[in-house]
Simulated assay, not measured.
Amino acid sequence: MKAFYGDLRTGILGGGQLGRMLIQEAINFNVSVDILDPDPNAPCKDLCNRFVQGSLTDFSTVYNFGKNLDLITIEIEKVNVDALQKLEDEGVLVYPQPRVIRLIQDKGLQKEFFKQNDIPTSPFRLFSSRRHLEAAGVPFPYIQKLRRDGYDGRGVYKVSTAADLKQAFDAPSLVEDWIEFDKEIAVIVARNSKDEIKTFPTVEMEFNPEANLVEFLISPSSLPREVTDRAEALAVKIASDLKITGLLAVEMFLTNDGTILVNELAPRPHNSGHHSIEGNRTSQFAQHLRAIFGLPLGDTACIGNAIMVNLLGEQGFEGLAEYEGLDKILKLDGIYVHLYGKKFTKPFRKMGHVTVIDDDRDNAISKARLIQDTVKVKI
């Protein structure tokens, strides 16, 4: 590989907030980044070395974007894997590897991978259509998930009654038993090409009940060490079994009886790791770059209590974004605001996040709750 700090031609598929924060970290490594994104106003547009507007799922667009690069990574899984595979075959480094992206693009294949590798997960069945699902007579309640293209809460549907079943997805999907869980937790793990693996400390997450996406995160978790050790060991096992190069977010359920079940994987920086920019000795973005550049992985220890609040577009507002209440929260100590450069807001769109750092955990949580109540993204 070329030296990472000057002449390594690097590209990212996707120009959203994850790409933006990767570029901000790449600048510290003296690395210039090219971006491919379909949005002409993508958050990365004015920060990258070269911006190409185009489809992430079109073979020719992805192949032509990458053929003169040395290394490509992703900030979203919905990309053309066949093009990435051809680029890899021709000598371009693609991390995470196309085979990993292909597996994770399909939630059914993810579940089969868990089963084949003895990774605990909720019981599941695969269905080709709504008619197939109706004929199976699966006992209510259960969760239906589209096998492909679901993200940020989309593509997930709870089926509690026969009436709900009539509105179920009519596409290839998986059905999971309804699980009573105590907490949703996550572990981010990194693996480099030298098989060095490190995890970030386990975090606890709260999800917006309407949008089904992360709204509030606490790091480090207050769970017993025995529980977090098991969660982090699971993340290491998955990264090792996948032989992934790069970052992997592992979302899990902690059930009422203390069982840990793996829910889903994301082979990239993730919302459950944004707090690490200020809250850990190495951020998830720096760790991802270290992993794909073949560098030693960084220290992931927590610096202090970190609480992350997502800034989501308010319901009933769609248009040019305004951030109500920012001036009020910036008067507080230990507040770090990250706005994503998105010109337009819409309901539940991720527009930014705020991280609170405080030596006192209760104080940190109180400040974060105040931020939740105070900052509103409107028009």
Score class of each variant (00 low, 15 high):
Val175Gln: 03
Val175Lys: 01
Val175Tyr: 03
Asp177Asn: 13
Trp178Pro: 02
Ile179Asp: 01
Ile179Lys: 01
Ile179Phe: 03
Ile179Ser: 02
Ile179Trp: 00
Glu180Met: 08
Glu180Leu: 07
Phe181Val: 07
Phe181His: 07
Phe181Ile: 01
Asp182Ser: 15
Asp182Thr: 05
Asp182Asn: 11
Lys183Ser: 11
Lys183Cys: 08
Lys183Gln: 14
Lys183Glu: 15
Ile185Ser: 04
Ile185Tyr: 11
Ala186Thr: 10
Val187Cys: 06
Val187Gln: 03
Val187His: 05
Val187Met: 10
Ile188Cys: 05
Ile188Arg: 07
Ile188Asp: 08
Ile188Glu: 07
Ala190Gly: 14
Arg191Ala: 02
Arg191Cys: 02
Arg191Ile: 10
Asn192Leu: 08
Asn192Ile: 03
Ser193Asn: 11
Ser193Ile: 11
Ser193Tyr: 04
Ser193Gly: 05
Ser193Glu: 11
Lys194Met: 12
Asp195Ile: 02
Asp195Arg: 13
Asp195Phe: 05
Glu196His: 14
Ile197Ser: 10
Ile197Trp: 10
Ile197Gly: 05
Lys198Gln: 14
Thr199Glu: 04
Thr199Arg: 00
Phe200Tyr: 15
Pro201Gly: 06
Pro201Glu: 13
Pro201Cys: 14
Pro201Ile: 15
Thr202Leu: 04
Thr202Lys: 08
Thr202Gly: 09
Thr202Trp: 09
Thr202Ala: 09
Val203Asp: 10
Glu204Arg: 10
Glu204Asn: 03
Glu204Asp: 12
Glu204Cys: 12
